[in-house]
Structure formats: structure tokens, C-alpha cells
Write a protein that binds this DNA or RNA. Structure first.
Lengths: 193, 193
DNA sequence: TTTGAAACAAACAGATTGGTCTATTTAATT
DNA sequence: AATTAAATAGACCAATCTGTTTGTTTCAAA
């Protein structure tokens, strides 16, 4: 029953294009060409470009949270180590890509925040999923004693995610590695009990 | 010698539109209509849309840094108080606008980061200007003793700006006020000596 | 008052965009 | 083998977009 193409492949290509050039700058022609499909196929799989965009967002979100969950529940490390390790991996990834690609969720949330309610919901939903993956790890660290209890777990989680996202913004704005390093240094300080 | 229109007015209108709907979603027609000018005038003032975009960015940057400088050099407060006060003002501003408008620089840097070298440069330049306004205040606070010396002034400045920008990202992603509150709470903690 | 350059106005053009339509092929099911 | 629905292909269309052109008005300097 193998069809020539499947949705996942197309979503993956779209994800790469959106991550590199943004949503509006990427035309359906480019997506179609890159994915090696025809217009007919594209519009058979997706209602319209916005529908595709939302599905790309969710695809990215699910893929990300799944991965983060495996690292953040790794019993070989304590909660603080897991957090630090996860961000080490992320930073290394951006370095490998030469700091050219940002975070899809950050990018699209800014570009499409107010454009279409479906996007607003999708961004909100996915960021909240991120929080839902991080917070238990933060809370566990606070309970075990390796992570600061000066603020409640949700506040600290939001602050960490904010600082990380902001570091990615600065990174993509041409400051390259430095903001990421500053983030990592500060992360260590703010986790300290 | 007052002409009917001037560049500043058009830049201001464009700034509002870009801040609300993004660069690509805002057509030149919309800009022209909103500013109450004709195509001819627009292309008389600006080489093309990208040129206009860069000028909007710089206009926003200059306006912002000027304002921040006045608050961050207010001798009536100590450095830490100045920082906290400035962000209080910003947060209040976003609240007044119902969290619908993000930061132009954050938004455009994400949308246009890799699109056109002029944008890359403009974003980098303006963010670096922000750092240049914040860092002296942070350094002064470290010297006077009101602000943490656990990290050097540039690192702390970058971390603060990152966390602030990231909080704005989360805010615009539909989480509204909460990320800003988390940012402010965490800011207080990370400034502590 | 003449002149020339900048500012203004709006019709226009060329390219691109997202999306539709019709027709054909594929593959699973009966 | 026949049937059916999904998948594929690509020509096509209407709308929109940026940018140009042509011509008029303004205004300050000569």
C-alpha cells in the first residue's frame, strides 16, 4: 500500500523551508518543488497553505517534545544535569547548522501570531506542551534539592524557556554563538539552590 | 516649505503595521493607504519595500534606544532600580495594548533574518545598540554593589535581554501576561548580588 | 517671474501567488 | 477482473503584489 509520497515527508520539507526562510517567503511552488510532488498532490493532502502551516507546526511540536521528553526523563542523570544536557545538545545543533536556522516555533509565532487564529492556537498549544515537558523535571529537581526553590516550578520553567527562546532570537539576529553561551552560563546560575 | 507628507509619518505607520501583522503580510498598498499617500510618493521616498523595511527598523531602534537611555541614566534611582523600572514601563505598555503587539525587532529579525543581508545587518546593529545602552547600567550596578557580580556585565546584559525577548515571544504566542510576570520575578532574582 | 528639482497622483505592467479544475494513474477491496 | 476512492499530474485562473511610467503640482532658488 506504499504510496509514492506521504504527508510526513512533505511536512518535513516544509518545516525546513519555513525554518530557513519563514512562512510567507516560502511559496507553495517552492514546497511542491522541494518535496517533489505536484500541486494536485499538495492540495489533496492539505486544505490550503495555512492548513499546511499549522500541520507543520504541530509536526515540529510533537517531534520536539518527544525528543525532549527522552532527555528530560533520563534516569542516569539528576534533573539539573538533564536540563543542562538538553540545552547542550540544542546549542550544539545550532552550532552545527552555523546558526542559520532558528526555532520554527519562535519564528512562526512571531510572523503569524495575529494573522490567523489557527496559528495563534497552534503556537500557544505547542509552547504549552514545551512547558509541560520541562516543568516536571524542574519540579523534581526542586524536590531533590539540586534546583533553586526561590520561585515556583512554573515560573522558573517559563523563565528558562523565555531566556532560551530569546537567546535564539539574538543568535539568529547575527550575534551567532555569544547569546547562547550567555544563556548557558546564566542557566547554571539560576538553577543553583 | 512644509510638504504634505514626510518620511517620519510614513515610517511610523509602517512600523505599526509591521509590528501587528509582520513584514510580508503587510503590502505596500496597505502602507500607502494607511499613510494616506500615493504609490508615487512612496517610491519617491524609498527605493523599494526592503529599503523601507530597513528604515523602519532603524527608526524603531533609534526611538527605542533614545527612550531607554533616558530611563537607564535617571540619577534619581540606583542602577538596579532603573532596570526594574524600565521593564515595568515596557510590561505596562504591552498590557495596555492587550498583548497583541510584539517587539518589532524580535518579529522582523525572525521573519527576515536570512532573507536579505540588509535586514540581517539592521537587526544585528539594532540589537547591539540595545546592549550598548543596557550594559553601562548593569556595570554601574555591579560596581556600586546593587547588582550581581557572578557574571561579567556583557553576559548578564545578554541574558537579561534574551529573557526579556523570549518573554515577549511567549507573550505574543498567546500566553499573554504570565511570561512577562515570570520574567520580572526572575529578573529580580538574577540581579541579586 | 522663470526655472528646475522634488513631491505627488494614479494608471499600468509584469511577475508571482495561492488555489481550482480536469484528467489520469495507482492500489486496495470486493 | 471489476470497482472505487485516493493519489498524482500539470495546465489554468483570478487575484495580488511590487515596482514603473507618465504626467501634474508644489515650492524654493535664481
Amino acid at each position: 500500500m506504499n504510496r509514492k509520497h506521504n504527508k510526513e515527508d512533505i511536512l518535513r520539507k516544509g518545516m525546513a523551508l519555513f525554518r530557513l526562510n519563514g512562512y510567507h517567503k516560502t511559496g507553495t511552488n517552492e514546497i511542491i518543488h522541494e518535496a517533489g510532488i505536484s500541486r494536485g498532490s499538495f492540495y489533496n493532502f492539505f486544505k490550503d497553505k495555512d492548513d499546511f502551516g499549522v500541520q507543520v507546526l504541530d509536526f515540529y511540536g510533537i517531534w520536539s517534545t518527544d525528543y525532549m521528553k527522552t532527555v528530560l526523563t533520563d534516569k542516569a542523570l539528576n534533573p539539573k544535569q538533564r536540563l543542562v544536557h538538553l540545552f547542550d545538545i540544542f546549542v550544539q545543533g545550532y552550532k552545527t547548522e552555523n546558526y542559520k536556522w532558528g526555532c520554527l516555533l519562535v519564528g512562526m509565532s512571531q510572523e503569524l501570531g495575529q494573522v490567523n487564529p489557527s496559528f495563534t492556537e497552534a503556537c500557544h498549544r505547542n509552547f504549552e506542551d514545551f512547558v509541560a515537558v520541562f516543568e516536571p523535571c524542574v519540579r523534581a529537581g526542586q524536590k531533590e534539592g539540586g534546583i533553586s526553590k526561590k520561585q515556583d516550578s512554573r515560573t522558573l520553567t517559563l523563565a528558562i524557556l523565555a531566556m532560551y527562546n530569546g537567546a535564539l532570537v539574538l543568535m539568529k539576529s547575527g550575534m551567532r554563538h555569544e547569546p547562547l553561551a550567555a544563556f548557558q552560563e546564566q542557566l547554571n546560575l539560576m538553577l543553583e539552590p
